[in-house]
Amino acid sequence: VAPGAPGAPVAPVAKRDGDVVARYGADAACWAMLAVPARETPSFSDALLHQGEANEFFRVRYAHARSRALVRNAHQLGFHQEPGDVDDAPALLRLLADHPLVLEAAAHHRAPERLVRSLVELADALLDFQYRVLPQGDEKPSAAHRARLALAEAAGTVLAGGLALLGMDAPERL
């Protein structure tokens, strides 16, 4: 039985939570519902409204917006992304390489929470990596910067695609 279909084993939203879409917005409510396995009742808190590190939904969207900002800033500095070797981002490279398997497992098991967890990990890795992408101070853009920019852009694309698969918006700016 497909999730959401009549007879599907999906836990209902608790009555105490009321109209979660009206309170938290469609994307945040959807995130909270998809972040838990289908048989578990989702929990809603005001943390969904807070734009900070404690909010995983915000971190994923923020990481996507940061990847787009890095591309815009690089263009202002006069360089663009080019594929190349990046040896200072093993976690980010591993998560990007594993993404097709995560998508396949999430679809096969009808478990969108697997994709949610993967997007959070990817966002955190990108947010840690972002400070090494652009040249600092008087430093000139190098092949390493162009390769790092390509990696950051790829991570942003995966984040946007993951959010879209979950039915959510991936804003260019936050």
Score class of each variant (00 low, 15 high):
residue 152 A to C: 02
residue 103 L to S: 12
residue 121 E to M: 12
residue 145 H to C: 02
residue 111 A to T: 12
residue 27 D to H: 06
residue 61 R to W: 05
residue 106 A to G: 10
residue 164 A to S: 13
residue 112 P to L: 02
residue 41 T to E: 13
residue 147 A to E: 06
residue 74 A to Y: 03
residue 2 A to F: 05
residue 16 R to K: 10
residue 120 V to S: 11
residue 134 L to W: 06
residue 103 L to Y: 00
residue 10 V to Y: 03
residue 89 A to V: 01
residue 8 A to K: 00
residue 64 H to K: 08
residue 37 P to R: 06
residue 27 D to V: 01
residue 61 R to V: 08
residue 79 F to Y: 12
residue 134 L to F: 03
residue 39 R to V: 12
residue 95 L to C: 09
residue 50 H to Q: 15
residue 131 Y to M: 11
residue 79 F to P: 09
residue 6 P to W: 01
residue 130 Q to N: 07
residue 8 A to Y: 01
residue 18 G to D: 03
residue 131 Y to E: 07
residue 114 R to A: 12
residue 136 Q to H: 11
residue 24 Y to P: 02
residue 163 L to W: 06
residue 136 Q to G: 00
residue 164 A to D: 14
residue 159 L to M: 13
residue 168 M to C: 02
residue 157 T to H: 10
residue 104 E to C: 10
residue 151 L to K: 06
residue 142 S to Q: 02
residue 76 Q to W: 14
residue 85 D to F: 14
residue 50 H to I: 12
residue 59 R to K: 13
residue 6 P to N: 06
residue 147 A to Y: 06
residue 77 L to Q: 14
residue 119 L to H: 07
residue 74 A to K: 09
residue 153 E to F: 01
residue 137 G to F: 00
residue 77 L to M: 14
residue 30 C to H: 03
residue 71 V to P: 08
residue 100 P to G: 05
residue 100 P to C: 04
residue 52 G to F: 04
residue 12 P to M: 05
residue 53 E to Q: 10
residue 46 D to G: 11
residue 48 L to N: 00
residue 16 R to Q: 14
residue 73 N to Y: 04
residue 43 S to V: 15
residue 80 H to R: 15
residue 42 P to C: 13
residue 133 V to D: 02
residue 43 S to I: 09
residue 58 F to P: 09
residue 118 S to Q: 08
residue 63 A to R: 12
residue 23 R to M: 05
residue 172 E to F: 08
residue 82 E to G: 09
residue 64 H to G: 11
residue 118 S to D: 10
residue 29 A to H: 05
residue 132 R to K: 11
residue 54 A to I: 06
residue 113 E to N: 15
residue 84 G to E: 09
residue 126 L to S: 12
residue 79 F to S: 10
residue 97 A to W: 00
residue 1 V to T: 09
residue 107 A to T: 15
residue 5 A to R: 03
residue 17 D to C: 11
residue 74 A to T: 08
residue 3 P to K: 09
residue 83 P to V: 14
residue 43 S to L: 12
residue 19 D to W: 03
residue 26 A to P: 03
residue 100 P to H: 04
residue 65 A to R: 01
residue 60 V to P: 08
residue 71 V to M: 12
residue 59 R to V: 11
residue 3 P to A: 09
residue 94 R to T: 09
residue 107 A to H: 07
residue 59 R to H: 06
residue 41 T to Y: 03
residue 74 A to V: 01
residue 150 A to T: 13
residue 153 E to A: 12
residue 100 P to K: 06
residue 155 A to Y: 00
residue 78 G to P: 02
residue 70 L to K: 06
residue 111 A to S: 10
residue 11 A to G: 03
residue 161 G to K: 06
residue 150 A to S: 13
residue 58 F to N: 12
residue 127 L to H: 03
residue 68 R to V: 02
residue 10 V to P: 05
residue 104 E to P: 08
residue 127 L to K: 13
residue 73 N to C: 12
residue 136 Q to Y: 07
residue 38 A to H: 14
residue 36 V to M: 01
residue 142 S to F: 00
residue 79 F to I: 04
residue 52 G to Y: 09
residue 105 A to P: 05
residue 59 R to Q: 14
residue 112 P to M: 04
residue 134 L to Q: 03
residue 147 A to C: 13
residue 20 V to H: 05
residue 156 G to S: 07
residue 160 A to Q: 13
residue 79 F to R: 05
